[in-house]
């Protein structure tokens, strides 16, 4: 029998009222809460750097007031989140596999090289690199996919939707 319910802290962690918190174990919501508070502190500092309001506009609500109100709310929620995590077992998370970091790196590289090699070449390289990174070894299929799919997407957007893509240094050079 299955009943659908959310757990108290939303992470699927059960409270341990009979045993109390496990010694030397920190629930991930604590460091997360501290990170949120630090983020709020940094953004609060940024609100102090806003330009002066021109005197003709000064009758309205100052521009920093609303973001500060939000930062106060986020900080309060972060404290509540840390408070709620007391007495809960830290969730046993599987470590992030290396392939995730590599995939994230590949996304950054893909976006980073668009201006240099142009959108089509960047898409093609990405369509080759990610399947290989994820363990695909049917190289012929990868080659067909990388050759056809980016070109189709490019023509759909550039011809049908009239989007001008960055052609990149290489493409410009050959033109």
């Amino acid at each position: 029998m299955t009943d659908l319910q959310t757990t108290q802290n939303g992470d699927g962690n059960k409270a341990r009222p009979d045993q109390g918190p496990r010694p030397f174990s920190i629930h991930t919501d604590f460091p997360m809460g501290i990170a949120v508070l630090l983020f709020c502190a940094v953004v609060f500092y940024l609100t102090t750097l806003f330009d002066e309001v021109p005197s003709a506009m000064a009758q309205g609500v100052p521009p920093e007031q609303f973001p500060r109100l939000l930062l106060f709310l986020i900080s309060a929620f972060a404290v509540i989140m840390m408070f709620q995590a007391r007495g809960h077992d830290p969730k046993k998370r599987k470590p992030i596999p290396k392939v995730v970091y590599l995939s994230a790196g590949l996304l950054v590289v893909f976006v980073g090289i668009v201006d240099f090699v142009g959108i089509i070449a960047a898409m093609m390289l990405f369509c080759v690199a990610l399947p290989i990174l994820w363990g695909e070894r049917r190289f012929k299929v990868i080659a067909i996919f990388a050759a056809i799919y980016p070109v189709l997407v490019y023509f759909l957007f550039s011809r049908v939707m009239e989007v001008n893509f960055p052609l990149g240094f290489f493409t410009e050079f050959f033109r």
């Binding site: 201006d115 990405f126 990610l130 399947p131």
Partner: peptide, 22 residues
């Protein structure tokens, strides 16, 4: 291994095409 590269390519092109800005 093919589906998600295809989705991300669409994501990049879709994000760019609205304002045509990187």
């Amino acid at each position: 291994t093919f589906l998600w590269p295809a989705v991300f390519v669409l994501a990049v092109v879709g994000a760019y095409s609205l304002e045509q800005a990187m």
